[in-house]
Design a protein around this nucleic acid. Structure first.
Length: 572
RNA sequence: GGGGAUGUAGUGCAGCGGUCUAACGCGCUGGCCUGUCAAGCCAGAGAACGCGGGUUCGAAUCCCGUCAUCCCCGCCA
């Protein structure tokens, strides 16, 4: 028999119909004379009921039916007796009066239960990913991911965007994330790279007159995975011509507004907040602030210059956080903050309470009058180099929120962080791009190329949700001269520039429209919408934090001949 | 490369120096049960406690090493 309806979609409108469902046996409840078999498919679960089944031709099969076997069941749909309606499930008003059953596929004992939701060992889940995916929560996540990607695609098509695929096997370009390399069989000793992002291609598409481009693109970065990072991941990649920064931002606001409405039925207030990079660093100690919490980092430098705490008195910067009404104020307890910061290589934190005010009456008076500090409040301060201290205060802020169990003011807080620095100093002392080397500087900062490049600001913007960096973008450089100057600032020689980026400079010199765009982390987006902590919960076949895939046992060794074809020799 | 947490039946966990011949829930096996939906009741099988070494009269329990997983730092233009 053909399936007539998904098990999970059987509904009171089917009452009286003879239907056929196909799916997995979810649960069996044998009461002796009456037997219930719940059948699950993609859409959900429905109950079938078998009265006096021992006297039917199916007695043998029904007595031996096992969970997770694949069955086909036919029967009349009927409304359940009033007292046995199950309001917990979608199909709970009806049931199928079983009259025919076929076992399509039997099963070995399973390594874990499908029908029960509980935390499983990650290795086991991955090894049997297809079974884990069969479980409701993952199944639902992947189905929602599909819905979200359709909403995204429809949104862009509806807004006049052209979807273009760009190569994944590309030229290696230096800088940024570590690339996966692909040896060329044809060109001995030469390599392709797996694309870190479609960045350059989307710029070329603008030069090629597509005006508005988008793509849900796979990207590859050979860096250690985390709960929000995989070595291959998906980006919503966008680029537009003849636009300014605010048009890109407004587009993203419309997209996210749509998704929040459609998926969560939440109206995101628009426009989103905007904060400059500098302000974010000073007030929250991070460039991805979690604005659900009002807790802020404050500057106490002046106040402590008059204190009698010597090292803070002399510190170039003293920043702190007032933890109002601290739950526990024991010395030992507060020391845990110190240890926390030390685990990040910080120097630790000085904690002040009002009950210690006799030690430095002047200081505490200032704290009370200027900052409204009250008994029970705890002030934690860090002194030292300004930006390092702010970074630590950012970590401290997160820790306080966690430890004090401070409740968020709202469920989602989205914010644009703008005016990023164009460059940053690496630990080795090299100048690197903060965003990427195609980012346009603010026009008024261009003269700084020759004098103080580290002071230059970029026309770049990040979208941050609840302290998570969802994506970032920028307006791009379209002047070959500025592009060249930027490469030089990064320390590339003329020869290197020509070798690595000659094609781009040439492209820019053939009539490049002003353009810019953004890339949003699609896996992170889906995870946020689904309320998941890890993007592994929204990716059908992710890899473990070691990059290992226990399902297929990848990576694996290859035959010698393969390596020989590629002119590759493996050494220890 | 580094830090932290975890590793006990199929699974989720308890036990953290002797009473552990390792407990419990789920699952599994057999039996009973005509309305359940975390079905119920009865009976039963199943682990030498990640691996290696050590301490001890005695180790799942302490120590060292090692491996694996997760979280984090580094890294992620």
């Amino acid at each position: 028999m053909k399936r007539t309806v998904y098990a999970g979609n059987v509904h009171s409108i089917h009452v009286g119909e003879y239907i056929t469902i196909k799916g997995w046996v979810q649960k069996i409840r044998n009461h002796g004379g009456v037997l219930f078999i719940d059948v699950r498919d993609r859409e959900g679960v429905v109950q079938t009921v078998w009265h006096d089944f021992l006297s039917t031709v199916h007695a043998e099969l029904l007595l031996n039916i096992k969970p997770e076997e694949v069955v086909e069941i036919s029967g009349y749909v009927r409304r359940r007796p009033e007292e046995s309606i199950n309001y917990q499930i979608k199909t709970g008003e009806v049931e199928i009066l079983g009259s025919d059953i076929i076992r399509i596929s039997s099963t070995l004992p399973l390594p874990f239960e499908i029908s029960r939701e509980f935390q499983l060992d990650e290795l086991l889940r991955m090894k049997y990913r297809y079974l884990d995916l069969r479980r409701e929560s993952l199944n639902k996540n992947i189905i929602f991911r599909s819905k979200i990607s359709k909403l995204v695609r429809d949104f862009f098509h509806g807004n006049g965007f052209i979807e273009v695929e760009t190569p994944l096997i590309v030229k290696y370009t230096p800088g940024g994330a570590r690339n996966f390399l692909i040896p060329s069989r044809v060109f001995t000793g030469k390599f392709f790279a797996l694309a870190e992002s479609p960045q350059i291609y989307k710029q070329l598409l603008m030069i090629a007159n597509f005006d508005k481009y988008f793509q849900l693109s796979k990207c590859f970065r050979d860096e250690d995975p985390r709960s929000d990072r995989q070595i291959e991941f998906t980006q919503i990649d966008v680029e537009m011509s003849f636009i300014d920064q605010f048009e890109v931002m407004s587009l993203v606001e419309n997209l996210l507004g749509l998704l929040w409405k459609e998926i969560l039925d939440i109206d995101l207030p628009k426009p989103f907040k905007i904060i400059t990079y500098d302000e974010s660093i000073c007030r929250y100690g991070t460039d991805k602030p979690d604005l659900r919490y009002s807790l802020e980092v404050l500057d106490f430098t002046t106040i402590f210059q008059h204190s009698n705490i010597q090292y803070l008195k002399e510190a170039p910067f003293v920043g702190g956080i007032i933890c109002r009404n601290a739950s526990k104020t024991g010395r030992k307890y507060l020391q845990s903050y110190d240890e926390y910061l030390k685990s990040y290589g910080g120097k630790g934190v000085k904690v002040l309470k009002l009950d210690e005010q006799e030690k430095d009456p002047e200081l505490f008076t200032a704290l009370k009058t200027k900052y409204g500090m009250q008994p029970g409040d705890v002030l934690m301060v860090i002194g030292g180099e300004k930006y390092r201290s702010l970074e630590l205060l950012g970590l401290l802020r997160k820790k306080i929120i966690e430890v004090e169990k401070i409740l968020p003011d709202k469920e989602f807080e989205l914010v644009w962080v703008v005016d990023f620095p164009l460059f940053e100093l690496s630990k080795e002392g090299n100048i690197n791009s903060k965003h990427h080397p195609f980012t346009s500087p603010l026009v008024e900062d261009i003269p700084l190329f020759s004098t103080n490049p580290l002071k230059m600001r970029a026309q770049a913007y990040d979208i941050v949700i609840n302290g998570v960096e969802l994506g970032g973008g920028s307006l791009r450089i379209i002047s070959p001269d500025i592009q060249q100057e930027l490469f030089k600032t990064l320390g590339l020689s003329d020869k290197e520039i020509e070798e690595k980026f000659g094609f781009l400079l040439k492209a820019l010199s053939f009539g490049a429209p002003p353009h810019g765009g953004i890339a949003l982390g699609f896996d992170r987006l889906v995870a946020i919408l689904m309320g998941e902590e890890s993007i592994r919960e929204v990716i059908a076949f992710p890899k473990m934090t070691s990059t290992y895939d226990p399902l297929t046992d990848a990576p694996s060794e290859v035959e010698h001949q393969q390596l020989k074809n590629l002119h590759i020799k493996v050494e220890d």
